[in-house]
Amino acid sequence: MSQLRTSKSDLARDFGISDDRSLSLFLKTLPGVDQVGAEARAVELGTRSIKKESKAWAIDMAISMVDLTTLEGADTEGKVRSLCNKAHRPDPTDPSVPHVGAVCVYNDMVKIARSHLDSIGANEIPVAAVATAFPSGRASREVKLRDTRDAIEAGASEIDMVIDRGAFLSGHYKSVFDEIVAIKKECGEKAHLKVILETGELVTYDNVRRASYLAMIAGADFIKTSTGKVTPAATPPVVLIMLQAVRDFFDRTGIRIGVKPAGGIRTSKDAIKQLVLVNEIAGPEWLSPAYFRIGASALLNDLLMQRFKMRDGYYASSNYVSIE
């Protein structure tokens, strides 16, 4: 395939996208996804047996990729602060445990998270905010832009936006596209943009592939599976389709987009399966928190428990890891 080697700002032009019609035509040129075949491949890669030093490596890599998340109406400042501590030192007794990839919170908690992280010397940990009327995305563009600006002003350096699934499903691709472009512009150089496709609402793998391309061309730095509020979320075949998309996109443009599965990844085994997918579908270049994140909350403790097991040779009681 001819490589464009383009810059991010020229993407729409390079893909020949100017209006609804050209975008729609482009998305229809993408090859279809065979559901049975895609699922079979994901199952096959799920049988990889990761042991010993490769497992130890994978566990630490997974920890460093976790976007430690709390997205509840019941979130409090105290809860967010303890989450930040956990993000910085997942196991206070063992400094060799890496810090997580980011702390992910609602907008109003961004300031608290940022200042607390800074106060405990965790300046390097970014705060990600779910903006744009998360999780449904049902608000005017003006509100979404304002939401984004608000998060960035409060100290968020990563924005997890949701796409307008209603517009996507009704074929108004350009509207979805323009919204991502607008939010990206709002992020500017100050924040990384993760675009949540909410694959559980897009339903088909063809849609997942199209939405992935749409988001990448519109300027996403990451494409993310789900909000975590809808099931199914980050299933292995969905992640596989998205990893294939970022790989193909890189081959075509030279631009490396990240992938973030979120929702339903709770065990170390699930996380390691995700890393196998990254390794064998996108390639080892994506095995870094710069290009792969896992949105999760309960996962971190399971990773720590597995780490204890590898270190000590037995499973410790869950009372040896803090619940928050």
């Binding site: 990889r48 047996s49 990761i50 042991k51 490769s54 497992k55 994978a58 390794n279 080892p284």
Partner: peptide
């Protein structure tokens, strides 16, 4: 990246 420089080489799982 060559497989040899890939940090995620799977340990033997016989």
């Amino acid at each position: 990246m060559k497989e040899s420089s890939n940090p995620f080489t799977y340990a033997p799982a016989p």
